[in-house]
């Protein structure tokens, strides 16, 4: 028997929460790797790492903003972005905003003692904002799905 749109959305919703969680961990690991070898920044490897970070950042932001499942029907995408999901996304963005603010304050304080470059500042703030937003969203989705 063919799956209904609701069943497909239910299945994809669970998959999305798991994938976002794993992608965020990969994203954070990628940043740990980047900052542990900063002397590479001007090299080809450094440029590759920065490009990888930028691409993954954009993909994660797009997934968070749109809910993903871009190749699915409009009905399934609407179900994947129902009221609860929109609320979870909003909470994710709010937490991401606060994470960005706190990170900026911390970097400002650190910069008084040890200069932090503009590029690194942007990198760290964006990484923290995205990671916190994604983890919040994924956690809320997983929690809601687990209880359902």
């Amino acid at each position: 028997m063919a799956e209904t749109s609701n069943q497909i959305a239910e299945r994809l919703s669970g998959k999305r929460a798991r994938v976002l969680f794993v992608l965020t961990i990969v994203f954070l690991s990628q940043q740990a790797s980047y900052f542990s070898s900063r002397h590479d920044a001007a090299s080809a490897v450094g440029h590759f790492k920065i490009a990888a970070w930028l691409v993954l950042s954009i993909v994660l932001l797009a997934m968070l903003a749109t809910g993903g499942a871009w190749l699915r029907s409009a009905e399934v995408r609407a179900l994947l972005n129902d009221e609860t999901t929109r609320e979870h996304r909003k909470t994710g963005f709010v937490n991401g905003f606060w994470a960005a603010c706190v990170t900026a304050i911390v970097i400002y304080a650190v910069d008084l003692f040890e200069p932090v470059s503009g590029r690194d500042t942007v990198h760290i703030i964006l990484t923290m904002a995205i990671a916190v937003a994604m983890l919040t969203f994924a956690r809320l989705e997983r929690h809601a799905l687990r209880d359902a």
Partner: peptide
Amino acid sequence: TQAELAERVGVTRKTINTVENGVFTPSALL
């Protein structure tokens, strides 16, 4: 079932469940 009600109102079962449990406050529309 939660799934049947979800289908009737055009949301996922997750939303019905969170509303039922008082975890999520629905909009006036929902």
